[in-house]
């Protein structure tokens, strides 16, 4: 006959195990996946594991098949007769990566579908990764160009600083061994739990406990909302753009198209803000792009038009409309602009 203490320990041990199993079974409904990120030998950067499925569970619930070269949403590379189609690389950050929308709604998929419907099909290869900027794109361009036999590059730029850093030194693309091994060893819900407990909200810094008495700066004590007058996009010095586009042009001789899709209109503090804060500098940027034979396409108008018609291209039901990542409509707006400009380019050539 086991003692009372043994019975209690057994009962709680068993109960906690059952509870944990239930959490593990239901966690894919709510928790994103944590995939290994091996270095791709052609791109020479880490990518999500080809052949795996990446689950996004934040704003937008979608599952993304990770294709060859770590391309999100791509099932297979083109072959045979299709290989003669013009091929474009799509670069950008998480907005172009599109893991928050289903594969068939991602920018590249919509663009391929639209061009096929028009009888002039192209291939678009989504090479964007979350957190990437121009330094990452430029590093990969030469190898990818030759490997994929590209006809051009498309850069989806949401934040101008992501483009401006093209003139800065190349950054290192490494992910820690520990981070790599932990994704192989532990289930996603355990990694997520450790991350929530041990790190600050953004996951970049280890959590620190404040045990000292107050007062403290309000930012650490209360929920901080963006300032009312804060401009949406960060302005960048206007004299660098000639160098930025020259740097890009030096890296590739192929056509380059920049799709400028700043996070506007945005809903901040209950108000719709249309100005991205870069109105003054944009003509200079466009001019600098033209000098380097780079096509600059401004998507503010279609994005604003759609928003003001009540169809918000950014945000999700399980996020917030008017802020955040491009949703299915936003992906479609970008894809349509991409198709228009590529068609134009092909006509000119």
């Amino acid at each position: 006959m086991p003692s009372t203490l043994t019975r209690v320990v057994l009962r709680w041990g068993l109960g906690v195990s059952v509870g944990t199993i239930l959490v593990a079974l239901t966690s894919p409904l709510f928790i994103r996946s944590y995939l290994p990120t091996p270095v791709n030998s052609i791109r020479n950067v880490w990518t999500l594991q080809p052949g795996s499925t990446y689950r996004w569970r934040s704003e937008g619930y979608a599952s993304t098949h990770i294709g060859p070269l770590g391309m999100p949403g791509v099932r297979s590379m083109d072959a045979g007769s299709e290989s003669r189609l013009a091929r474009f690389a799509l670069w950008g950050d998480s907005q172009a990566e599109g893991v928050s929308v289903p594969d068939d709604a991602k920018i590249f998929a919509v663009a391929e579908r639209l061009t096929a419907e028009q009888g002039n099909p192209i291939h678009v290869y989504p090479l964007a990764r979350s957190g990437d900027d121009a330094r990452d794109w430029l590093t990969q361009m030469p190898n990818v160009e030759s490997h994929l036999k590209l006809a051009g590059h498309i850069l989806l730029v949401v934040d101008l600083p992501d483009l401006a850093v093209a003139i800065e030194p190349t950054k290192t693309n490494s992910r820690g061994e520990f981070e790599q091994s932990i994704t192989k060893l532990l289930p996603a819900f355990v990694i997520h739990g450790i991350r929530n407990l041990a790190f600050e909200q953004d996951g970049s810094q280890p959590r620190s406990l404040r045990l000292s008495i107050g007062p403290v700066a309000p930012s650490t004590n209360i929920l901080v909302l963006p300032d009312k007058e804060q401009v949406v996009n960060t302005t960048v010095a206007s004299d660098i753009w000639t160098d930025v586009f020259a740097t890009i042009r030096n890296r590739t001789s192929l056509p380059v198209i920049v799709l400028y899709a700043p996070p506007v209109p945005v809903i901040m503090q209950g108000k719709v803000r249309i100005d991205d804060g870069n109105e003054v500098v944009l003509p200079e940027i466009r001019e600098a792009a033209m000098q380097s034979d780079i096509t600059w396409v401004d998507l503010r108008e279609p994005l604003t038009k759609s928003s003001l018609a009540g169809k918000w291209p950014r945000g999700f039901h399980n996020g917030q409309f008017g802020v955040g990542h491009l949703n299915e409509l936003g992906n479609e707006i970008v894809a349509r602009s991409l198709v228009d400009v590529v068609s134009q380019l092909e006509l000119e050539n």
Binding site: V16, V18, T20, G193
Partner: peptide
């Protein structure tokens, strides 16, 4: 059910 529910709440 208490240990099960408790562990689920903590998780």
């Amino acid at each position: 059910y208490s240990p099960i529910a408790t562990s689920i709440m903590i998780w």
